Amino acid sequence: MMILRYLTYLPANLALVLLAYLLSPLLAAISLLTGPKLPGVLQWFSTLDADLDGGVRQGVKGYRSGLSGWRLWWQRTCWICRNPAHGWQSRLLGMPAFGTIIARQWISEDPKQQVYIMQTAAGVRFFCFKRDQPIGGSFYLKLWFGWVNKAYDGRNHHYAFQIGLKRS
């Protein structure tokens, strides 16, 4: 049932992520007028736990404070693309955090991998799979599937379908 729910949500997730990528320049432009937090439902195209300057506060490499104009627009566009549709993944496709327990957990260091089976207060089970697959040198493939094991916004475990290249 967990896998079936995940696969059912996959097309909506892919559509929302694509829409976030396409709208990111416009959303970043709107933020120059409204501030670093997008208004209303537009916030769902980015992270709910941070505004569009979140990379600065979190110390993400390449994100700088004190920018304005085109540079600020570009940095916010990049932040939306780095975290596309997280709000939608949390509020629309997410699993409720209140009363959720971790039913099972497996963690290994070589390769770095985490698997969680979680259960909502209503008894609905869901999963989280994270793996850092070494691909050579200091590079690895970051794989996240299921629902993130932490509720970053404090309300929901957001839907995750993430494949990315990372450097350690």
Rank of each mutant, 00 (worst) to 15 (best):
L27I: 08
S31V: 04
K37P: 00
W44L: 15
F45V: 04
D49S: 14
A50C: 07
L52S: 04
L52H: 01
L52Y: 01
G55W: 11
V56E: 12
R57S: 15
R57H: 09
R57G: 12
Q58M: 10
Q58W: 05
G59D: 05
S65P: 13
G66W: 06
Q75P: 05
R76A: 01
W79N: 06
W79F: 14
I80E: 03
P84N: 07
P84L: 08
Q89G: 15
Q89Y: 02
R91V: 11
R91A: 03
R91Q: 05
M95S: 03
M95G: 03
M95C: 01
P96T: 13
A97Y: 06
F98M: 06
F98T: 07
I101T: 15
I102Q: 08
Q105G: 02
Q105Y: 08
D110A: 13
D110G: 03
P111G: 11
P111I: 15
Q113V: 04
V115K: 11
Y116T: 05
Y116A: 09
M118I: 02
Q119P: 00
A121E: 13
A121L: 14
F127D: 04
D132A: 12
P134C: 07
F139S: 10
K142H: 15
W144N: 14
F145I: 13
W147Q: 07
G154C: 08
G154S: 06
R155V: 04
R155K: 15
